[in-house]
């Protein structure tokens, strides 16, 4: 698998290289992570999945345009950072458990965020297609309006832009309603 080719394909909207690259280095990564950092196979697998996703996101956002080394080295580098975060959070959790005392959660805590994400997930399901894909392309995959127009066969950029606006407006309404239901 030519690494520069992987970047080009992902830039062009092809997601197939993501699974190809996942398959190519999964076993090497798990072996390396378990052996060098003493984490479990399950955590190593989760970290690797996150590393591949970040690799994809960095290409889509334009942060990664060409590789100085191989894709494998790049992935392992992301993986290493994630393992360090995981180990730090495990240490923190252990410390918290040792010195546990009740403290009120701060406003906009991770728990609040999690709750909002869950509400949004419900709202996205209600929103349905093609809006879900349009918003995913624009806000997650960083597609330009022109790329969305081309990928989804809209008549032109204006049509795609209008569609995106309508989808976002609809999502806002559903999201607001779901929030009310929850509260």
């Amino acid at each position: 698998m030519a690494d520069q080719n992987v970047i080009a394909r992902i830039r062009n909207g092809d997601e197939q290289p993501v699974t190809e690259i996942y398959r190519a280095y999964r076993n090497d990564f798990i072996y390396w992570a378990v052996r060098n950092y003493g984490i479990t196979e399950e955590i190593a697998r989760d970290v690797y999945q996150m590393a591949v996703v970040i690799f994809y996101e960095n290409i889509r956002s334009g942060k990664l345009t060409h590789l100085q080394s191989s894709a494998k080295t790049y992935l392992f580098g992301i993986g290493k950072n994630k393992i360090m975060e995981e180990l730090a959070s495990q240490r923190k959790a252990q410390k918290l458990q040792e010195n546990f005392r009740y403290e009120p959660l701060p406003a906009d805590s991770p728990e609040d965020k999690e709750e909002l994400f869950k509400i949004l997930e419900v709202a996205l399901n209600e929103l349905g297609e093609p809006c879900r894909t349009v918003l995913d392309m624009y806000y997650y995959k960083n597609y330009g309006i022109d790329q969305i127009a081309e990928a989804l066969n809209y008549k032109g950029n204006d049509s795609a832009k209008t569609q995106k606006y309508k989808c976002l407006t609809r999502l806002k309404k559903i999201f607001a309603r779901q929030k009310e239901v929850k509260s």
Partner: peptide
């Protein structure tokens, strides 16, 4: 701002699910 973060999180979840299926 919330919706953007949420959409990004949802997109990432979808990718992770796809990789878990691949696995």
């Amino acid at each position: 701002r919330q919706l953007r973060l949420g959409l990004q999180s949802a997109g990432r979840s979808r990718m992770l699910t796809m990789l878990a299926d691949t696995d």
